[in-house]
Simulated assay, not measured.
Amino acid sequence: MSAAQDGVGARAARRRFATLGRSVALFRAFLVEQTDPDHFYGLLADDSVRQVSGYTPLAGRTVLDVGGGPGYFASAFRAAGARYVGLDPDVGDFSAAGDSVAGMLRGSGTALPVRTASVDVAFSSNVLEHVSEPTRMLDEMVRVTRPGGLLFVSYTPWLSPWGGHETAPWHWLGGDRARRRYERRTGRPPKNRYRETLFPISISHTLRWTRGNDAVEVLDAVPRYHPWWGRWVIRVPGLREVVAWNFLLVLRRTSAPPPGGAEKTELTGGRVAM
């Protein structure tokens, strides 16, 4: 089979995966994300592994999950044969999903404690909107990915109906106003606090970053949870910010990494050989 035929077959397989039924199941699970996180994140983990597998085989590959949170993705990636390493600012968060902290790293997404060009897949799900310097995190994910490796990054755009997270849709009237409203109604601050742990990010901003980065090529830029026939919305500036729900960017690392780079092996304070 030629490379072109193989590419057509892979795209067809991804279309068969991105069905309306899948979108409905994910949306229903999302509605109980706050009350039943095990259900939502367990479903999302399985869905994510299947989605990543549509772009690259996972068996024997090293996957770095930037912002792995409570570790819901660990078992799903490992079941696919990947060597999974989760990274989060607080390793203790991994215990929320009953996962061991063994093989997990504590560190910042904007300064990854990982050796340059050492992972096959740099993965991040719904983290970028929680980072004050999102392009710096993207740069770091590019740095640690081997040439030919895959970057899989998704996030909720600020203008999405869910961009304000638990304060949505009132964030459309302003992040600070939405936060104050939430506090008045619940008597407590939201977990995702505007410009503290939740930052406005746009699809256009991320696409501009890709156009200015010669070290990556875009394999896909799609609404992550939409059926395949809804992909067109990403081509429409403005509209995509509102209707994409969640934006997925799939990149391939193209250029060789710069020489050098630390190779310390401490859990924190240095870069870990993967």
Rank of each mutant, 00 (worst) to 15 (best):
N192P: 02
V144Y: 02
R146H: 08
G163C: 01
G187T: 02
L151D: 01
R136L: 13
R211P: 05
W228A: 14
T145R: 00
G149P: 07
V119T: 05
D176F: 13
Y194I: 04
M141C: 00
G187R: 05
R188H: 00
V233W: 10
G149V: 00
P161I: 01
V236L: 08
R146W: 07
P227M: 05
F123D: 01
R224T: 13
L173R: 15
P169G: 08
T156Q: 12
D176A: 15
W170N: 12
R188E: 12
R231D: 15
V144W: 07
D139C: 06
A168M: 04
N192S: 04
T135C: 14
H226A: 15
S154T: 07
R115P: 01
N126D: 14
L219C: 09
R188C: 00
L239I: 14
H165M: 15
R188A: 12
E140R: 01
V233E: 12
S124P: 09
S202Y: 11
T135P: 10
R195P: 04
T197K: 03
P134E: 07
Y194H: 12
P190T: 07
G174P: 00
T145C: 05
V119F: 10
E183R: 15
V222I: 15
R208H: 13
W209Y: 00
S118W: 12
P113Q: 04
E183A: 15
Y182E: 04
S118C: 06
A168K: 09
M141N: 01
P169D: 03
N192R: 03
V242I: 11
S124D: 00
E133K: 14
I201S: 01
L128P: 03
V144A: 08
G238L: 06
N192G: 03
N213R: 07
R231K: 14
P190C: 11
Y182I: 04
T110A: 10
L207W: 02
R177Y: 15
H171K: 07
P237D: 07
G212W: 09
D220T: 09
T116M: 03
